[in-house]
């Protein structure tokens, strides 16, 4: 079945993994795993240069239909982040924003992160955030009910806390890709909060989609769950048919 992948990156990482980091690598993985769309942010933007990275990501998304763009925003550069959002969020290939607490060295509790989130909520209905504090995420979910928040890696080994967060807030979405394939977490989330707030994210091409697919398939998905988590939930968030 067709998959929509809500977690990917374009660009290099400082690790000795061959054949990664290019548009071609992403497209090859899309072909291999029947991925219809992949929403990606720029590794260059996360690691070094927000503006150059977003520009590179936009150029790739403009040229290759499967690629969709998260505009990377950085709480340390609020004005520039707003400018980046204003520049790209109106584009067809743009799906929302991406925040990374670790790479920006800014916890979700920081005032400047709250300021950035307010600016994001004014401009878009979707943000993906690399993990933060559950209390802050809950506050944002309540303060901005029209903003859908994808929680990347969904708290890793502390996934029950992420599931409780989703259970309490309908605009919280869980994305379980992780560098370790924790057993049982997908089934736990499905049983506790149902399939409607779980999206498929792979973290390609740092992580191969099959690594996360393995976690989903091992959960023994029903047809309804499979359709929801691999495609329909993401399609709804993206406004696709």
């Amino acid at each position: 079945m067709k998959i929509i992948d809500m977690h990917a990156h374009l660009g290099y990482w400082p690790f000795a993994i061959p054949n990664c980091g290019t548009v071609e690598a992403l497209l090859r993985l899309c072909d291999r795993y029947d991925i219809e769309y992949v929403a990606a942010s720029s590794s260059l933007a996360l690691n070094y240069d927000m503006q150059a990275g977003n520009e590179e990501m936009a150029e790739a998304a403009r040229a290759h239909e499967p690629l969709l763009m998260y505009v990377y925003v950085n709480p340390n550069f609020l004005a520039q982040s707003c400018a980046e959002m204003d520049r790209y969020l109106g584009e067809d290939f743009s799906v929302g924003c991406k925040i990374h607490t670790s790479y920006s060295a800014t916890p979700t509790s920081a005032p400047r992160m709250y300021e950035l989130m307010a600016e994001i909520a004014r401009r878009t209905s979707l943000v993906k955030i690399h993990p933060g504090d559950a209390e802050d995420l809950a506050r944002w979910a309540r303060a901005y009910p029209d903003l859908n928040i994808i929680v990347a890696h969904s708290f890793a080994t502390n996934y029950p806390a992420a599931v409780e967060l989703a259970l309490a807030h309908p605009n919280i979405y869980l994305d379980f890709c992780c560098s370790h394939a924790g057993r049982g977490k997908v089934r736990y989330a499905l049983d506790r909060c149902g399939p409607d707030q779980i999206v498929f994210g792979s973290d390609m091409d740092l992580i191969d989609p099959a690594f996360t697919i393995a976690m989903f398939e091992a959960a023994g998905l029903t047809d309804t769950e499979r359709q929801a988590v691999y495609r329909d939930n993401a399609a709804r968030l993206l406004g696709l048919a």
């Binding site: 291999r32 370790h180 394939a181 924790g182 057993r183 191969d208 099959a210 690594f211 976690m215 091992a218």
Partner: peptide, 27 residues
């Protein structure tokens, strides 16, 4: 680059999902 005879399978079950490293080997 490490050695084709020096990499071997460990799943770390039951904590980790057995299928994940197995799919990496298949692909």
């Amino acid at each position: 680059r490490g050695g084709e005879e020096q990499v071997l399978f460990g799943s770390n079950s039951p904590d980790r999902e057995f299928l994940a490293p197995l799919l990496m080997a298949r692909h």
